[in-house]
Write a protein that binds this DNA or RNA. Sequence first.
DNA 1: CCCCAATAGTTAGGCACCTAAGCACAAATA
DNA 2: TATTTGTGCTTAGGTGCCTAACTATTGGGG
Lengths: 173, 173
Amino acid sequence: MTQHPEGGPTAPSLDQARRQIARYGLAADPQAVLVAARLMAAGARIGQAGEVHFGRFGLSTGRYRLLADLEDHGGEKSPSQLAASLGVSRATVTGLVDGLEREGLVARRPSAEDGRGNVVILTARGADKLRELAPAHFTRMQALVGGLSVEERATFLDLLARVVAGMDALTED
Amino acid sequence: MTQHPEGGPTAPSLDQARRQIARYGLAADPQAVLVAARLMAAGARIGQAGEVHFGRFGLSTGRYRLLADLEDHGGEKSPSQLAASLGVSRATVTGLVDGLEREGLVARRPSAEDGRGNVVILTARGADKLRELAPAHFTRMQALVGGLSVEERATFLDLLARVVAGMDALTED
DNA sequence: CCCCAATAGTTAGGCACCTAAGCACAAATA
DNA sequence: TATTTGTGCTTAGGTGCCTAACTATTGGGG
């Protein structure tokens, strides 16, 4: 039988948060803790859903992002630039490019200017893949936030940005 | 030199979304696409930040969640139950328990009722670890959403829940 | 009473991500 | 010019997560 992780991991409840805080005699605000926990849970689920989404096309989130970034940049970019714009390590880019190259969606060429550098180029098949993906992809992206009105989306975007900003501040310590 | 993936992956911009939609002549709403893209990016970043956070204590998000769930359940639970309440596959639970067992935070015992079953129990060291973690953990969780007022947090929680609900609807097709 | 389907858990293999360490080449400096 | 320092990319090894394919054991229906 197939294993379906689906089936909602009983998202953390307010009571659960309260209980945990009480157990250690801490002075945290349960509502804040709940929001944070839900956000983290949502992040994980959205990430997995994205993986499933791209999986339908034989890609993954990381591979798609690399492809899209490449196209957005004229179809040619160095691994370092890709790592920077995708926000992942160069080692990860090596892995992503390995996979995409194996499928013929991308190719590596030695850099003309820099003897130790590479350039990753989008192949015709890679461009085709993006074209093939686009309609379903954008439809789905839109549907993800389709339950919110335009104003709500704007509010959400603002709140999300502030949370991310706060997180960045925390990360560096 | 150390590689610091930090350095913000130029979060997708509205223009970028517009450009991509235009390139394929699609009729998607750029704002909606932008919100969805930002949400996915934020999810990934929050997930990574959480990993760093727990890494400071020699744990990971998954291992911590398992430990916390175990404690919340009296310190004893079967792998299947853990998989269900954490929302991950049984195979993943096997991996998490392997790791936690190696560190002595958890132990496996054959189930008394079911000959093929196991029971995972929280050891004294595991309980200590949770106690040690708690203050920093809850402080951090709270700080994550500290940039929002109580009302804003409530709004955020509502919007987030609706997005997740919409996503669940999409997932099953 | 025995067989066979359902269930518990593990193993095997895949992908994304990371850090740390290595090799190649470039640029700056003595 | 020769050497050191920095940079570009890959490799090696680790974690988490997944699906699919076992192995054991349970328990219901012929």
